[in-house]
Design a protein around this nucleic acid. Structure first.
Lengths: 191, 191
DNA sequence: CAGACATAGTTCGGAACCGCAAGTATTGTG
DNA sequence: CACAATACTTGCGGTTCCGAACTATGTCTG
């Protein structure tokens, strides 16, 4: 890494820039450090264990989700992996083309599709996951065992809160005004 | 949200799947919850404050970094934002085309490029950031003030640790073997 | 049972994204 | 002045990503 600014320096600059503005600093620091940490950890894991298997982060997460749950319907895989259905379609195709994942139709409901690891996929995860976990230990090195637990627990509370109340919050925020269309994305057939 | 599985259920499934394998569970839970939380928070922020200004997450982060630091050389912007230089070139173009960002040559070193917000960009951030901060408060709702501080501090330690030791760790991990080339990417001119 | 509505997944447009190679320009150095 | 180093851009080949439109299937209702 050896960055230009350390995380501590950035926080000082924020303080300087926003010194006069009334803000909720603790929450700001908490949230922005979550993203800083997530990015740094992700980059470390991508450039260590994942890279050697030529897996992307998202590809790994999808494999992981399916591995943990066994067979799983695609809509739930997308949700667990934190990606959209459309993205999953593409990612699953990539993983299928590498022989790691397979796709089954649902026996009774023709709309559903189910994902499952191939034997090669199972083997890969059995090999990869311990290495992945070793790096999780490495990045958690500065935390005491009790701190790691406490960290996980606080984050879990935040996620649970968002799962329960996020949608309502977003509805309240925008009130009547519907969401503006995105700049990019598919357009209606004709004006 | 209203997911299929809650985060608690997922952790139970992990326990079931990996019950026999010797793993470091606390660190695993901590790291995976960091990513879960980061994804959930990012989606919430994108679909509330960012969406109304048609900003992507990365676009906002770049604006934020430049806003906090004032003028900043592009290489440092990329690093602070957690993206590659090549990506930054594209993102900066997008933001310039919207009149939010401008690009200046460095007065003394002709190789450098410097980014700075336009008045429109300053105005947008001044308007947007308080709203953004309000949502940071919302997502941190389940945390006591002291907990938010403690969370930020633990994450800061993890990031600092990675900044200091990540590169060496990756070097040690791969030992002699150079990184395998990526599946994709530009090829050398002739084999 | 036909038509309306709902649900699951795919397709598609536009953008972001990476890593690498190669190109351009500039600066530092022996 | 040759030559190395540095900083950024450009382009390639691929992946990921969202969300709206679209397709196919299932379900509900009159």
């Amino acid at each position: 890494m050896s960055g230009h600014h350390t995380i501590a320096e950035t926080e000082k600059a924020v303080q300087a820039k926003l010194g006069a503005v009334p803000l909720h600093r603790e929450q700001m620091a908490a949230v922005s450090n979550i993203h800083r940490a997530a990015t740094a950890i992700r980059q470390h894991l991508e450039n260590s264990v994942l890279r050697t298997s030529d897996l992307t982060w998202t590809g790994f997460v999808v494999l992981w989700v399916v591995w943990i749950w066994g067979e799983m319907e695609t809509r739930y895989v997308a949700e667990e992996a934190g990606i959209s259905k459309g993205t999953l379609t593409g990612v699953a195709k990539t993983l299928q083309s590498r022989g790691l994942l397979e796709r089954l139709g649902h026996p009774t409901d023709g709309r559903l599709a189910v994902l499952r690891l191939t034997p090669e996929g199972e083997e890969l995860m059995a090999d990869l996951f311990p290495k992945f976990n070793e790096e999780e230990v490495f990045v958690s090195d500065p935390l005491e065992s009790s701190e790691a637990q406490s960290l996980a627990e606080m984050l879990r509370r935040m996620v649970t809160h968002l799962e329960a109340n996020g949608e309502q919050r977003r509805l309240d925020l925008r009130g009547d005004t519907p969401l503006p269309p995105r700049r990019s994305g598919r357009r209606a057939k004709h004006g």
